[in-house]
Amino acid sequence: MPEDNPPPVAASAADESARLLLRCAAGDRVAFRTLYDRWGARLHGVALRITRQSALAADATHDAFVQVWQQAGRFDPARGSAEAFLISLVRYRALDIVRRRARETPGYDAAEDRPDEAPDALTQLVGSAEGAALHRCLALLGAERRRLVLMAFVDGLSHSELAEKLSVPLGTVKSWIRRSLASLRDCLAA
């Protein structure tokens, strides 16, 4: 009953998500729902982590999937992964929503109530080839810089929020981030 040489689970799941996106681009509602069932919880988790409020997270998840449906035609499996497409959509929406909230709500402090420690669930990364490479390269950054990158990506903190959170000057944060990103790029290209 199983196939002779089943592909690695992660690879075939990624292929399946890419196929679902292509079907969405063709207007297939069943594929859209299947994609939601497969990715809804991961995207919502990302949205919730960045917005920290269920109502804002719901907006971000809603908006992201509406964009998935409307922009699936832009997805090109030859150029990128379904994961990057989907994660990017929800992160931009969530960041947009919290930044707008911060601008419109005097006294709103996005860095407040943040978990003090950036997540160190980095072992989750090794589940995919891309993640494993990123994990290896993050390790080269050293604990401090790695934490900075994770707080930015995972918690959605801006340059000034990071500076406030870590009590370091804004310029220092910017240069740390830039050097960390350059180092990641070089390591991933190696």
């Binding site: 919502h44 269920s54 998840t61 990128g80 992964s81 990057a84 497409f85 997540p119």
Partner: peptide, 17 residues
């Protein structure tokens, strides 16, 4: 986006309402 997206795996999934 391709380089950094795998970082999202660090965030626990949360079933949306």
């Amino acid at each position: 986006q391709e380089r950094l997206a795998p970082l999202a795996a660090c965030v626990p999934a949360v079933e949306p309402p």
